[in-house]
Design a binder for these strands. Structure first.
Lengths: 183, 183
DNA sequence: CGCAGAAACGGGGCGGCCCCCCGTTTGTCG
DNA sequence: CGACAAACGGGGGGCCGCCCCGTTTCTGCG
């Protein structure tokens, strides 16, 4: 993953740092040329290390996705299956909505390591919740991730306050995944 | 809105037709130059008639948005308030998810006529549903529209079948807007 | 230590896009 | 039918992503 040669490794790290700042500042569609400029390298170097925008996004957010997966794993071991899933989904949504660009690295696409990681972590929680009848059987982990990323991206592009709106919308959607109590 | 001079009106209509086809084919971020090319006009003519991509989107989808508003109005007069809202939201979601680009013309922005139209139409249904205690009081029409457009846009970018996934996700989210029956 | 080959670099070109200027054409109305 | 306003569109500027390929830099071996 990370290059062998010292100069390449240095450029790689500077690109990651510049990209992280740019994505936080301007969102997932920040200019790649500008990122290369900020990193002090030519644009060709950026494209050699990261053949696509998606690859750069994934590299930037890989660590944070890993942390979210770790959190899922801990919740799966401890709490009740039902609350564990909703707690994680809310935490995931809040974090994704407050981290510009992160949602874009969770969309399903070919060889998207971040997406696969989150799916595997979330599926563990979902499977347990389903076994405890805490969630509707037809709900899939892809459904849940799509909801979280869709809401996050929608709120990300909206002008004013984003955190509270994302929380409210996610709350509605998450309540909808429970089995309906009455008829 | 529509130009006075005959040649301008002809170009306007050809641009709308070309844009409608392009948006359906490639989504809301289709190339404006290509649309002008397909319409047989210079790109300057496109920009004179439609100063922004949003303006073109709105013009293309204005009629369909009007039809959706009309449908809301009819539902508001007839059925029970609670079901009327959910029926309309499901119909709206199904239609938006199956019409590439339409979701982009519903996002809130300055002077977005389509957005205002939908908001006013939906608010009528929501107000009645709220008065009948069929919906949580804190839910706003902006929340609902954001959910519908967010899910539609997410599904729009996904590869395979979109209709069924949009329907399932919307079903979950819409169920979440009802007052919670138990605790 | 030094060198040869491999690995990495980046300037710069290509094509595309959006946006707009401004000289030219065309419709309209008296 | 003529003049004037309205509309047109070629083309240029700026930015972008992408990639070729001549040049530089690192590294491991003799």
């Amino acid at each position: 993953m990370r290059p062998r040669r010292a100069d390449a490794r240095r450029n790689y790290d500077q690109l990651i740092a510049a990209a992280s700042a740019a994505f936080a500042r301007e969102g997932a569609d920040a200019s790649l040329e500008e990122i290369a400029r900020q990193a002090g390298v030519g644009s060709a170097t950026l494209h050699r290390h990261f053949p696509s925008r998606q690859a750069l996004l994934n590299a930037v957010f890989h660590g944070r996705v890993e942390a979210l997966c770790q959190q899922a794993h801990e919740l799966a071991e401890g709490a009740d299956p039902g609350p564990a899933l909703t707690i994680w989904l809310r935490a995931l949504g809040a974090y994704v909505a407050s981290t510009r660009g992160l949602a874009s690295s969770l969309v399903p696409s070919t060889d998207n390591e971040c997406h696969h990681m989150i799916v595997r972590a979330g599926d563990e929680l979902l499977t347990r919740a389903r076994a405890a009848d805490a969630v509707r059987p037809e709900v899939s982990i892809d459904d849940l991730l799509t909801l979280v990323t869709a809401i996050s991206m929608a709120v990300e592009h909206s002008p004013g306050e984003n955190g509270s709106e994302a929380e409210r919308l996610l709350g509605l959607a998450i309540d909808g995944i429970h089995p309906r109590p009455a008829g």
